[in-house]
Amino acid sequence: MSLHRRPRRLRRDGLRELVAETRLAPSDLVAPVFVDATTDERVSIESMPGQERVPLDAVVDRVQEVRATGVETVILFGIPEAKDARGTRADATDGVVQRAIRAIDDATDVTVISDVCLCEYTDHGHCGILEAEARDAPRLTVDNDATLDRLASTAASHAAAGADIVAPSAMTDGMVGAIRERLDSSGYADVPILSYAAKYESAFYGPFRDAADGAPAFGDRRHYQMDPRNGDEALREVALDIEQGADAVMVKPALAYLDVVSAVDRAVDVPVAAYNVSGEYAMLHAASDRGWLDLDATALESLNAIRRAGADLIVTYFAERIAAQL
């Protein structure tokens, strides 16, 4: 065996970093923030250790905590004071996310992404307007076309409040086109859209539904979110959203879909985001609590894997913890 080529030579301390193929920086990370209009104090999220719901009057402090670690971007999720069948509070001028955006914009230099969906605002927990008779026939779910106007109105209200990026996550066909048209006609042509273009109907979302009160009251979301068995379909979804005006696209979840992240990155010429979701976060915490894994080491390795797969930015609940290490 020839020993002229020894890959180990470049693995020594002082050289490993020099030749590392993947670079991860705090500026690559996006920290989720949950703003809760129903509480006047911070509330820990039991299934997501270290994460909280924060009241409106604490949201600036929460975002400044994120910024102090070097993370420059947050994505906002809102828990409204009231819910109804149409998610009326989603596009309210005085809605929880709209008020939070204005407060953050006035007090910080943090980039704000707003999640645009209805599941947190509807009393049935689905991501849009229900089809006729859906409450009596759980096989029916969301009326796609009736939902588009609600999503467009919500995105425009976020832009009016000062959101730097709007991120539709409802997996509603045509949502990017509807939002782009509304933003442009409302004077917000410069506000970019980060589309949850390949969002799977995943079992890894459980803790998030605790955090955002967004679990469906009946049925599930398999009729509008993607089948986890499908990969090529993600490329079609991404292509459609880019054609409609998406400035960046997201794959969700991340770790179980690294093949999709990689395929999307190779196929498109816009930035690719990946969402390291709540279940992926919670399972590492659970294993760490039992002494089975080192939390910091596995979290960092996971984020590097997502970055290596091709993600330009990563939405992750580990953002602050890992940024502090970086």
Results as ranks from 00 to 15, higher is better:
E17M: 13
R67W: 11
R102N: 07
V96H: 06
R6C: 09
R86L: 15
V251R: 00
A159M: 01
R182Y: 01
S153Y: 06
A90K: 07
V33S: 04
V268Y: 09
L24K: 12
A146V: 08
E81V: 13
D57Y: 05
R86P: 07
V59I: 13
L29W: 11
R23F: 08
A68T: 12
D247I: 00
S157F: 00
L148F: 02
K252Q: 12
E280L: 05
D227Q: 10
V59A: 09
E72H: 09
T73D: 00
L313C: 13
V277H: 00
V268P: 07
G125L: 10
G50L: 00
L255N: 03
G231H: 13
A198G: 10
D36Q: 13
A263P: 05
V35A: 05
H285K: 04
R42I: 09
L118D: 02
S47Y: 03
I314S: 04
N304R: 15
D57N: 15
R9G: 09
S186I: 00
A68I: 05
S47I: 01
F34E: 02
P271L: 03
L151D: 02
L10E: 14
L29D: 02
L284G: 01
R180H: 03
G50V: 11
A152L: 04
R62S: 11
S27C: 11
D123K: 08
R102L: 10
T73M: 05
D210W: 06
V71A: 05
R12S: 14
D28H: 13
D143M: 00
T108Y: 01
A234T: 06
A31T: 11
R42W: 00
